[in-house]
Simulated scan of single mutants.
Amino acid sequence: MSLRVAATLRLVDHMAAGAHTPGELARATGADAEALHRLVRHLTAVGVFEEIAPRRFGPTGLGLLLADGHPLQQRSWLALDQIIGRADLAFTRLLEAVRTGRPSYEALYGRPFWDDLSADPGLGESFDALMATEEEAVDEGFIATRDWSGVRHVLDVGGAPGGLIQSIVRALPGVRGTLLDLPSPADRARARIAGRGLSDRIDVVGGDFFDELPVTADLVLLSMVLLNWQDDEARRILERCRDALEPGGTLILRERAEPSPDETTSTADLHFSLLDMRMLVFLGGRVRTTAEWRELAASAGLAITSLVTPITSPVVPFDFCLIEMTPVD
C-alpha cells in the first residue's frame, strides 16, 4: 500500500522536479509533511528511495519505475486513482468473493467493472492507456504466429482500445477490420484509430457482444475477452461469434497461456493464479486451462482446430496462446 500511495502522489515525478525534503514533497502533493516523511522513510528502508542527504530523498533505480513517463507504466498500474489500483482495493472483500463466487468490485463500488469504466471517462482512459502499454511489441509476436493468407475481413469483438486490429491491418495491407465494443470504449477507439490515419480500413461499431453481432467476417477475433467472464457468459459470446462467421471462417482467441503441459500443476503458477484471482475479484471471470477451453468450445458448437502456445511476450510477465476454432458441422 505504501507503493500505491507513493504512485498516487507522484512522488518520483516531484523528486525529478526538485522536491526532495518532506516539506517540499508535502507542498507539492498537499500531504502532511510529517506523515509523508514517515512514508518516504519506510520506502527508503525497502529500497524504493534513498536518503541522498539528511532528510533529502531521491528515487533508486527501482523507484524510477514509478516515474509517470516510464515505458512500463508501473505508476499507472499501482496508483489508487487509476483503474487497476482502484480495482485492487476490491481484494479487501476477497472473503465475500470466495464465499459467493461473485466479483467484489461491484459490491465495493456499486456497479460492475465495465459499467464503471463506461460511466467514468477518466477510468476508461486510464484502462485504455494500460492496455496499450508496449502493444506493438506484444502484437507482433501474435501476428507472426499464424498464416493470414486468404483473410479478407477481421472482426475484433470487444477489441477496444483498438491496438491489435490496427497492428493487423498495418501488417496485412489487403485486410480490412471492424472493431466492436460497448459505445463508450468504441468512441475512444474510433478517435484513436482516426488519429492513426486508419479510419478508411477499420470500421468501429458500438454494440454488445451478447447480442447478435452486426457484421460477419471470415475471421472473428476475441483477444483477452473471455477470461473476463464465467462459463455461461463466455459460451454465449462464443455462440455470437460463431454465428458471425462467414462460411469457412475461423474464430481466433488470444488468451493467457497455460504455463505447463502438466495440467495437474499449471494452475499453481504465480502469474496464472494472480491473473485468475484478479478476474474473480474484478469481474467474476476466470483464466482457463487447455482442457477447460476444449470443453467450453464444445458447449458452444465449436471445435479447437489449432492451439499455439506459448507465445512469449517481451513486456508482460506471462505468455499468451492462440486458439483457433471452427463450427462443428
Rank of each mutant, 00 (worst) to 15 (best):
T250W: 07
D187P: 00
A16P: 01
I311H: 03
L296T: 13
R4H: 05
D115Q: 15
A33R: 08
T100E: 08
L270D: 07
L274Q: 09
T8S: 10
D13H: 09
T216E: 14
M277Q: 10
T60A: 08
D115Y: 01
S2H: 10
E263P: 13
P112G: 14
L95F: 02
G285T: 07
A160Q: 04
A244L: 09
L9Q: 03
L275V: 10
D139W: 07
D208Q: 03
G110W: 05
I311E: 14
R111A: 13
V40F: 04
R75I: 04
G18Q: 08
A297G: 14
R27D: 14
M279V: 02
Q74A: 09
A17D: 15
T309K: 14
G301K: 11
E34I: 00
W114P: 01
L296Q: 12
D68S: 15
T60Y: 05
G177K: 10
F209V: 04
T44S: 14
T178I: 11
A234F: 12
G285K: 10
A298C: 03
F209A: 11
I202P: 03
Q166D: 08
T305D: 13
P112V: 04
L164Y: 13
D147P: 03
A297I: 08
D156E: 10
D139Q: 09
L11D: 08
L66Y: 04
A189T: 12
F91M: 09
S149R: 13
L65I: 02
G101R: 06
R242V: 14
E136P: 01
A297H: 11
M1K: 02
L253E: 15
D120R: 12
F49P: 00
A144N: 05
P71G: 09
S2P: 06
V281H: 03
V157H: 08
Y105P: 02
F282L: 02
T178K: 12
G163W: 07
L251E: 14
E51I: 02
D232L: 10
G159Y: 11
V151C: 05
A53T: 04
E34W: 00
H42I: 01
Q74I: 14
P261C: 10
S306F: 00
S126M: 07
G30N: 05
A26R: 00
F49T: 01
L66T: 04
F209S: 05
A45P: 00
L296G: 12
R38D: 13
R146K: 05
V225H: 07
I323S: 12
T178A: 15
I304G: 12
D232C: 01
V151P: 00
F49S: 02
A90W: 02
P103F: 08
V215D: 07
R235A: 14
V225S: 07
V175H: 04
Q82C: 04
F209G: 06
V287H: 03
A194S: 15
D88T: 05
R176T: 14
S299E: 14
R254N: 14
W77E: 06
T326K: 15
R256A: 11
G85L: 01
V169C: 08
E34P: 00
V48Y: 06
L219D: 03
A7G: 06
T264C: 02
A67Y: 02
G122W: 06
L270R: 13
V225P: 09
S273A: 15
E125R: 15
D262L: 10
L251G: 10
D156V: 07
R152N: 03
V98H: 02
